[in-house]
Nucleic acid binder design. Structure first.
Lengths: 125, 125
DNA sequence: CCTAAATCTACACCCAACGTCAGGTTTAGG
DNA sequence: CCTAAACCTGACGTTGGGTGTAGATTTAGG
């Protein structure tokens, strides 16, 4: 598939794909002499994973550092141990974010209740 | 307290406080003729709340739209209804983020398990 | 009263993460 | 074979969230 289709399917602009390529986040499956980029299905998954990691608050540089481990196996025991470390660090992080988000949600809910009450009261008078 | 102390206690630079002031996120308790800004304890709390909301992924503009409701009551029924809308939108958002984060965490855990297995196997051989 | 430290305003600059534009090349379909 | 649509590169613009710096003013402590 060419960059246009990839762009459409992954929901990012082709300029963004170019940009990500420069940062080492994605690369075309092949680029025969002509210059056109051709991608495979994995590229779609990759861009989707990038989007997810971005939503979790990682910078593009941070994503570049870990994205590969979702799509190729680390070689050698050292590589695997390194990957394991990174994954565990991310897990700790995710748990912290979950806690914060949960507290925020509770906060929101109580404020919503309060607002409802205030509005009801204001209407009564 | 002056801006230096506020800066120190809230863990943000005084330049950032100036910047936030321009965006309407904080304002000094008083500014007598001289020009110096003087803050009270609430300002510390405010800056901490801003930091929290930022960590949750809100932009400074979005924060500006809701921060007041943590520290003063919206005036008038229209104001309260507006605040309610914003809160409810944020709740929807928070729920979506929670779902995504939970899925991400599951993913991480399964990858961690897999890595453990791969490492154990590699060591056996 | 004097001076060093803190603060003031205003403008310029920085980085990340793109988007826009221009001018040229490649491809696919009729 | 021709042309419109897709693609290429490179340079420049933009937005968000700040930081740096200069030159002037204010304050506090000895």
């Amino acid at each position: 598939m060419q960059i246009g289709e990839l762009s459409e399917r992954a929901g990012v602009s082709h300029r963004t794909i170019h940009y990500y390529e420069r940062l080492g986040l994605v690369k075309p499956a092949e680029r025969e002499g002509t210059g056109y980029r051709y991608y495979d299905e994995v590229a779609v998954k990759r861009l989707e994973k990038i989007a997810t990691l971005k939503r979790l608050g990682l910078s593009l540089d941070e994503i570049a550092a870990v994205i590969d481990l979702y799509f190729e196996d680390a070689s050698g025991i050292r590589g695997k141990e390194r990957v394991l470390e990174i994954l565990q660090a991310q897990l700790v992080n995710a748990n912290a974010q979950l806690d914060e988000l949960t507290a925020f949600k509770r906060d929101l809910e109580s404020n919503i209740t309060r607002m409802h009450a205030l509005i009801a009261e204001a209407k009564r008078t």
